[in-house]
Design a protein around this nucleic acid. Structure first.
Length: 264
DNA sequence: CGAGATGTTCGGCT
DNA sequence: AAGCCGAACATCTC
């Protein structure tokens, strides 16, 4: 489920617990979600620790605890975070549960494609600091984006937009949305864009991220009615601009939908 | 009931 | 030999 804006929405679900202690931890530590992580250490160190802050970069979430503990959560395909009442009883898919005095913070993930990471250190974990600049940040310049595309010249644009090393937080629906708004064919090679197309792609990518964060990311409200997202999963979906039936194909390993007329 | 899903990773192929 | 592609991961829903 979660891309950039959804991840931001879920981050906010845990922020009411910031500044307060974790009383107890419950987790399914043997599950795939905890691969490469010492799950017992999470229980031992977070019980009694103070939850300091929640941050998101791209699709990655980081929760900081005192003293010097960092909890990473990736929501995968079906993960979500919620704040439940203090007497919440965890279900089968509630893999990480942090009990506080006034609420319970829950990481729920049926498909278990998500991931939990944990590190004790003064400085932030490498997997966090290595995430590239946010698309909405000043560091994400047109030149930086153009350079990234130039390093993957033969890759289809759709596949390039899905690379988290370049477009942090963009997932399947956002990639289709950006390409549709930029009027670019998802099969177009990333290295064969004109200067004008690069400018358009850059502006549209920033706008789609910004608007998605301001709507979905705030309260899960709908992005503008004019967007492709409202029709892209309907089998009979038509282009909102010229009402032609959308084409469907697998590009970059994912179902891709686009307008055969206005996307070149 | 079978197919596919808002994601990542790994192994194999070019 | 870097880069690309398909498969696998586990469960639920349409």
């Amino acid at each position: 489920m979660p891309e950039l804006a959804e991840v931001e929405f879920f981050r906010k679900q845990w922020t009411p617990g910031a500044g307060q202690k974790i009383l107890r931890v419950a987790l399914h530590g043997t599950k795939r979600l905890f691969r490469g992580t010492d799950a017992d250490l999470i229980s031992a160190r977070l019980a009694g620790a103070k939850f300091l802050a929640a941050e998101a970069r791209g699709k990655q979430l980081l929760f900081r605890f005192s003293p010097h503990a960092w909890l990473g959560i990736h929501l995968g395909m079906s993960g979500r975070l919620s704040a439940e009442p203090a007497d919440f009883v965890p279900g089968k898919h509630d893999h990480l549960v942090l009990v506080q005095k006034r609420r319970t913070l829950v990481f729920h993930d049926p498909r278990m494609f998500g991931r939990v990471q944990f590190q004790l250190s003064r400085t932030a974990p490498k997997w966090w600091t290595e995430i590239p600049p946010a698309i909405t940040s000043p560091e994400f310049t047109k030149a930086w984006m153009a350079d990234f595309l130039a390093r993957h010249p033969k890759l289809a644009l759709k596949a390039a937009l899905l690379l988290q090393s370049g477009f942090a937080g963009v997932g399947n629906w956002m990639a289709d949305e950006i390409l549709w708004q930029a009027r670019l064919d998802p099969r177009h090679p990333a290295g064969k864009l004109t200067a004008a197309e690069i400018t358009t792609l850059y502006r549209v990518a920033r706008k789609v991220c910004k608007v998605a964060l301001a709507t979905i990311g705030v309260d899960w409200s709908d992005p503008p009615k004019s967007w492709l997202i409202h029709v892209r999963w309907k089998a009979s979906g038509c282009c909102p601009r010229d009402h032609l039936p959308l084409k469907t194909a697998t590009i970059g390993g994912r179902t891709t939908r686009w307008c055969p007329r206005c996307q070149k």
